[in-house]
Amino acid sequence: MDGFFNDLAIMAPAVAFNIYFAAASIPLGFVMAVFLALGKASPNPLINALSRGYIYAFRGSPLFIQFFMFYSLALSLNLTVWKPLGISGFVLHPLFVGPLVLVLNTAAYTAEIFYGALRAVPRGAIEAARAYGMSRTQQFRRVVWPNLIRLAWPAYTNEVVFLFHATAIVYFALPVVGPQADLMITAKTLFERDYNAFLHFSVAAIYFLLVSLVVFFLFGLIYQRLMRHLPAQPGLRFAPKWLR
């Protein structure tokens, strides 16, 4: 039991790295995904093909390979580009490359979710907006977007949790700088010290589960806010109702 609490304390700073990777890539990925989804729905053949290809490529290949590919690409450009500019320490840092690749990856997955939601927006609502004489931007801001985000939110919540889980492989592909180790690396070093797989990996799993539950809770709150126009579900009762 002592070892358990020890591990909880050791891994508390490590979970901050996983949360950093997720938190740094979610907002940018969200914005990029909106543009990619619109691009995939666009009638312009060039934009359409580009966004389609991008989404297909990044959803069809493993994140692990993407990490290796972009990091080694950045490394090979080091002598010719980053060094002369004097930013190699910044560009090659895992705290920069990690979120960068995660953004590229999650944008593709999120774009697919948003594209599905975009196609599910009721046709009648858009026609009504057009009948009111709204411009294209007005249509999007007032009708399409609110519908889209409500339809996409549950699936987007799942994607955010998957992204958080994906942060577990960041440091298997990128170098660990000094004490900047995330949950998986910490669990692995602890394991290599005393070979207690059950303890260390379970504690890491508990942290992942806890953060996932927090994400589900927070995104559930946002979903409730998005759905506030609908009658609320009756809440749970904790005492029996004796009289009607």
Partner: peptide
């Protein structure tokens, strides 16, 4: 499904 696949992927063979 609640823990990352990498974690279980590493843990199971070792365990």
């Amino acid at each position: 499904r609640g823990v990352p696949d990498v974690l279980f992927f590493l843990f199971f063979p070792l365990a």
